[in-house]
């Protein structure tokens, strides 16, 4: 397998998924919360993947998931990457107590897994999507900060940066000069963070945290698992399996995009 081929394939998958997310209202045969059809239909006819317990079209819910899950992933990833980058540059710029303070905060999140913290505080927050997204953003910048800080500490020794510091440049100036060197790492981390955010969202939905009316893949998985008869007969094949596969495909495509087959392939939590 060639490195470039894999990346192109991953990019293509992601593009298709994003287009489906954008075009979902025209693609979906039904409104995802329209419950006028008979309940628990098997696939076939008008319902490509059958209907759920409430008589809603599963295929439409799956399509809605493209939009909901991907946009949540993008928002959370963008904001937490932004926070992480700013904090990392601050670490390199202010050094001393600022650096030590930010680093000791990130250390907490290495020791107590992020998802546990996110889950517990999302449970305390209100059930609106915005609240849950805020909690996810607030608790997921630590990894980005840690990795970028290491890079920023090296980059700041470059001549251009030292010159900026000599001219008494402020945090913003230093950040702007640092950006071209920092950019590749930021881009990689942003992509990885998208995958993480999608998984966090699915995990929270699966636990029943957040807006119950949201049509994300995680919610569809939860709805399927909440139905008592899901593992009897073959209902799980068209209700539970498709959202799981979509989620895995999305996360996997993101991982392949940043994965270097010639290098190690280590997970850096």
């Amino acid at each position: 397998m060639k490195n470039a081929t894999v990346k192109k394939a991953a990019l293509l998958i992601l593009l298709i998924m994003m287009v489906m997310g954008i075009a979902y209202p025209t693609l979906a045969p039904f409104q995802p919360d329209d419950f006028s059809s008979p309940a628990l239909l098997p696939p076939g006819g008008k319902h490509l993947l059958g209907t759920n317990k409430m008589g809603q079209d599963i295929f439409s819910a799956l399509l809605a998931g493209f939009r909901v899950t991907i946009s949540i992933a993008l928002i959370v990833s963008f904001c937490s990457t932004l926070i992480g980058t700013v904090l990392a540059i601050s670490c390199a710029f202010y050094r001393r107590w600022m650096d030590r303070f930010i680093m000791s905060v990130t250390e907490i999140f290495i020791i107590v897994p992020e998802i546990i913290v996110i889950m517990l505080f999302a449970a305390f927050a209100g059930p609106r999507v915005a609240d849950v997204v805020m909690v996810m953003i607030f608790f997921s910048w630590s990894r980005i900060t840690r990795i970028l800080r290491g890079k920023a500490m090296v980059i700041i020794n470059q001549d251009t940066l030292q010159y900026t510091l000599l001219l008494k440049g402020n945090l913003f100036d230093v950040g702007r000069k640092m950006w071209p060197y920092l950019y590749p790492a930021v881009a990689t981390l942003f992509i990885q963070q998208c995958g993480r955010a999608a998984v966090y969202e699915a995990t929270l939905s699966f636990l029943g945290i957040g807006d119950p009316a949201l049509k994300s893949w995680g919610r569809t998985i939860k709805a399927a698992l909440d139905y008592e008869g899901i593992f009897w007969g073959h209902t799980y094949l068209w209700w539970l399996l498709p959202p799981i596969l979509c989620l895995i495909l999305f996360v996997l495509a993101l991982a392949l995009l940043t994965f270097d087959f010639d290098e190690s392939g280590e997970r850096s939590d």
């Binding site: 397998m1 995958g195 998984v199 699915a202 995990t203 699966f206 998985i221 799981i244 989620l247 895995i248 996360v251 996997l252 991982a255 392949l256 994965f259 087959f261 392939g265 997970r267």
Partner: peptide, 14 residues
Amino acid sequence: LTLLLVLQTIPVFL
């Protein structure tokens, strides 16, 4: 390695 990568990207609850 590819197999391990695929396995490690799948969230544990899925």
